[in-house]
């Protein structure tokens, strides 16, 4: 447990977080790297759903931990913060809200004492056509309308009540846009932040992907976004497929994303960390040297634009 991050000190609804520095997203294939090269990153981000198995809503002992991953993170958490980045809440699903998921995140908070946690501004669960619930396993776009804002705001407040650590939502990646929305994404996120105190996980690769596929202007987007709300930044790599550029987490960070990082780092006063995301199956191709290069470049940029990372120890 991290004394400096004790739950009593977490300010629910505010964005007071420690400056952690450079983070690496957990994947089982990266365990040896994380153990051997722990000096090259400051914290670990983890998708909880890859550490537990979910037996389904209403089941007794619904969440069953995968023993190896749980033990690894438990050991790592003695040396550095472990920050959850969930893919399971589906905060924008209109047909139900999974409060058992919140209870589980609260249990994780007791275990890891994380300084913040996050999920996605999206939905992946939907009511099926008379045949139960569908899980698309992909973050689907929400209509950025007043109805959605009302729904998501109420749920953010519930999350903040239940899990005593700042909560962030990540800007989504889309391959198509919904026509005639009430808000553009920066305005929606700014309004959500103002209404709830919800922080932002600014995924710069998602923004780059949307620029490539949908013609967004990334700098105009960032100029419109309230960067005071940004607590965490993601960077990653992608690939071309069928005329689209995909958010595939498949390798090195592309040059435009490095440029975006350079541009926003000095403008995010409440930033807690920058995380590199890589799917484990691509680690073999990127290699240890490639991964070290990504982390080194992140560290160099962090050092230039942000305060020295705080050493948060047990």
């Amino acid at each position: 447990m991290h004394a400096a991050l004790a739950a009593d000190e977490a300010v629910t609804g505010s964005l007071a977080v420690p400056k952690l520095g450079v983070g690496l997203a957990y994947q089982a294939q990266l365990q040896p790297f994380m153990e051997a090269k722990g000096e090259t990153f400051d914290f670990i981000e983890v998708v909880p759903e890859v550490v537990w198995n979910d037996l389904g809503p209403g089941k007794a002992a619904r969440y069953v931990h995968e023993a190896g991953a749980h033990a690894f993170l438990d050991a790592q958490s003695q040396a550095r913060p472990v920050v959850p980045h969930s893919i399971g809440l589906s905060i924008g699903s209109a047909h139900r809200f999974d409060r058992e998921h919140l209870d589980q995140m609260a249990r994780w908070q007791e275990w890891l004492r994380f300084p913040w946690h996050s999920d996605h501004l999206a939905f992946h669960l939907a009511q099926g056509e008379g045949q139960g619930e569908v899980n698309l396993n992909l973050t689907m776009p929400l209509p950025l309308d007043g109805e959605t804002l009302e729904l998501v705001s109420a749920r953010v407040l519930e999350v903040q009540q239940r899990v005593r650590a700042p909560f962030l939502l990540e800007n989504n990646v889309y391959y198509f846009e919904l026509a005639g929305q009430d808000y553009d994404e920066p305005t929606f996120l700014n309004t959500l932040h103002r209404q709830t105190g919800c922080g932002l996980l600014l995924d710069l690769h998602n923004l780059h992907v949307n620029a490539c596929n949908l013609g967004w202007n990334t700098h105009r987007y960032l100029d419109r976004l309230d960067l005071d709300a940004v607590v965490e930044i993601h960077v990653a790599g992608g690939m071309q497929f069928d005329g689209f550029y995909l958010d595939a987490h498949s390798g090195s960070v592309p040059r435009p994303v490095w440029s975006l990082l350079e541009a926003v780092l000095p403008r995010c006063p409440n930033l807690g960390g920058v995380v590199f995301e890589l799917f484990g199956t691509w680690y073999g191709k990127l290699g240890e040297e490639g991964l070290l290069r990504q982390l080194g470049r992140m560290r160099e940029k962090w050092a230039r634009h942000q305060p020295q990372p705080e050493r948060v120890v047990a």
Partner: peptide, 16 residues
Amino acid sequence: MSLQAFQSVLARLVTE
């Protein structure tokens, strides 16, 4: 209710 129906149809567009 409207948003729920919208999400159901959008999911169906993806899966069918």
